[in-house]
């Protein structure tokens, strides 16, 4: 890929009409904490686009925004919680899922969305991911996969492609990357999808589906890190990577997740891979305790929560 050629407008900019204002504020901003903008993400980073899509998914979801909470770990994507105008929790590195577990179970009326990066969710937080998927906890996990640790300066991640150079793999990565949808599928996630930052409309739809799906939903979103991953590997700018996603993605809904690993040569398989019905942790618990305790069972409904 070549760096984007800067095509400058031919128009004489004196002609640009500055007198007109937009009749409405960008509606996406209503989902964001505007007093915290501009955000920290680099030019060409895809996380802002993912947030844009998430905001539009929320707006069209019909949910009361008071009942949606977002939980993030640490890292570039971990900052998403801080920008969403929702109950938002910026927790510790890798531990967004267990935090979300407690939040969701103690307040069953909440829709809980976990927003974090590949390193946060699959390296330091990998074990929590496996067990939350196994339990089929009712939450949506949005993983922005930028193939690197952005916040700390571009170290090798569990998703870094083979041969790529990173600051702690200076001579090329020799660790095989993780196939995230396969891991999620194997662990028992009941909704698994992968899209890229190019696929904005599909992403909005997938995020809505993931929020509505009862159970553990996982969406991997491939996103460029121009400052650390792309620059170090001479892969151009953010927009070049998104163009690459556009040109090299193939849609395979229902694909066997075993076959969707990211490689240097194969196309990027995108789509909804897994959609299965499975009782959630809370439903299983309530059913089991009702079956064994009968009338003595008092479900957790927040009725004992002192207010």
């Amino acid at each position: 890929m070549n760096p984007t050629e800067i095509m400058v407008s031919d128009a004489d900019e004196k002609d640009v009409d500055t007198s007109r204002v937009a009749p409405i504020e960008n509606p996406v901003l209503s989902m964001l904490r505007q007093d915290r903008l501009p955000h920290i993400w680099c030019p060409g980073c895809g996380i802002g686009t993912v947030v844009n899509c998430f905001s539009r998914a929320l707006m069209s979801s019909g949910h009361d925004m008071n009942n949606v909470a977002v939980v993030s770990g640490i890292g570039c994507t971990g900052r998403v919680a801080g920008y969403m105008n929702l109950d938002s929790f910026h927790t510790t590195h890798g531990r967004s899922i267990p935090f979300a577990t407690g939040l969701r179970l103690a307040n069953p009326g909440l829709k809980v969305v976990v927003f974090s990066g590949d390193g946060d969710l699959f390296a330091i937080g990998g074990n929590h991911f496996l067990h939350a998927a196994r339990r089929n906890l009712d939450m949506l996990i949005v993983c922005v996969n930028n193939f690197t640790y952005g916040m700390t300066g571009g170290q090798v991640a569990p998703t870094t492609p083979l041969k790529s150079t990173q600051s702690t793999m200076p001579f090329g990565n020799f660790e095989p990357p993780m196939n995230l949808p396969f891991v999620a599928d194997a662990a028992g996630a009941s909704y698994v999808a992968r899209w890229t930052v190019f696929h904005i409309r599909q992403l909005v739809r997938a995020m809505k589906e993931g929020m509505e799906h009862k159970g553990f939903s996982f969406i991997e979103i491939m996103s460029p890190c121009p400052t650390l991953y792309l620059r170090r590997n001479k892969l151009g700018d953010g927009v070049d990577q998104v163009r690459y996603f556009k040109e090299h993605s193939v849609l395979k809904n229902g694909a066997n997740t075993q076959d969707v690993a990211i490689t240097a040569t194969d196309p990027i398989v995108v789509g909804t891979f897994v959609e299965r019905e499975r009782p959630t942790w809370l439903d299983s618990r309530n059913a089991q305790l009702t079956a064994t305790l009968g009338d003595r069972f008092v479900p957790y409904g927040g009725q004992n929560v002192q207010k």
Binding site: V71, D87, F89, T91, T92, R95, P98, F99, A100, T101, G102, L103, R104, L105, A106, N107, L110, G302, V305, K307
Partner: peptide, 10 residues
Amino acid sequence: IAIQGAAWGG
């Protein structure tokens, strides 16, 4: 940390 999520849940 699950207990901390639950604490914010009430």
